[in-house]
Design a protein around this nucleic acid. Structure first.
Lengths: 141, 141
DNA sequence: CGCCAACGTTGGCGACACCAACAATAGCGT
DNA sequence: ACGCTATTGTTGGTGTCGCCAACGTTGGCG
């Protein structure tokens, strides 16, 4: 029998608090670097899965098509990505990460890794691996 | 050496995804019951820590004073809580949960527990306890 | 008594997620 | 070949949510 009315005992609540802390930790560093979290996510998926269309990016990240447009506008303005129409399917835009974007992403990775470290300040290496493994099993969208 | 550009490898990202899933899981059920997540949180803290002022509630939950007002307006309208001026400090309002609110909270607890269960669908009891323990250590606001 | 701090309340602002519509294009069945 | 439907990129709008500013009221303190 679960003790009644223990708010801090529910995982949904703990997840929310932890995620909020993680979010500000990462966002502070990324905004200081001039980008948002979605900009980072798009750059990361572009290196993970190679060039792809805007709709693919949105589907993979769970981001709306219209929001993908805004993010790519910024990334293109910074020279991080290039947009060229797909000759095989002229509806699509092939989005490719540039060399500038790749080196920039390397720096962003350090910032996110730093946020990860600060978030799990008081956790051992084993605990961190365990937490990551557990999260991967429940993060399935 | 961390493999480069692995978005899914960062804990901040995994936490965000997991928290989003947990959020919709809990919110769907709570909104179906006619309340929001903050309403549930306020009711829970009122039973956990007894009657308290609005400012105390806000500080404990990390919620802005102005938002506490709106939540309490709803809860008071539903008869879940009562607001009476503190005779000892006439700036404060003593917020007390009513019997109706207590029974309602019992029902909400079931909904949140259900969300917890669905969230950790494929996790054993040991895994759930481990995850909860780890989250408690990094959820520190 | 005078100054500062805290409380509850109102209003607003910016970020963000989501949805609707549209033109252009592709695919597909007949 | 043609019509119908689906997809893509894009624009614009809308609702929600967290956060902040201001104000009147009240308490505490020098």
């Amino acid at each position: 029998m679960s003790e009644p009315h223990r708010l801090s005992g529910t995982v949904v609540w703990l997840l929310g608090r932890a995620a909020q802390r993680a979010h500000v930790l990462a966002r502070d560093r990324l905004t200081a670097a001039g980008i948002g979290k979605w900009h980072y996510a798009v750059l990361a998926t572009l290196t993970e899965h190679g060039q792809q269309s805007q709709a693919d990016i949105g589907r993979r990240l769970g981001l709306d098509r219209s929001d993908v447009v805004a993010v790519l506008n910024d990334l293109q303005g910074d020279g991080y990505v290039t947009r060229e129409p797909d000759p095989a399917d002229r509806r699509r835009n092939i989005v490719t990460i540039s060399d500038v974007g790749r080196t920039a992403l390397a720096g962003f990775d350090l910032l996110v890794a730093e946020a990860d470290g600060l978030l799990m300040d008081e956790l051992s290496a084993d605990d961190r691996a365990c937490l990551k493994a557990l999260l991967e099993r429940i993060a399935h969208v």
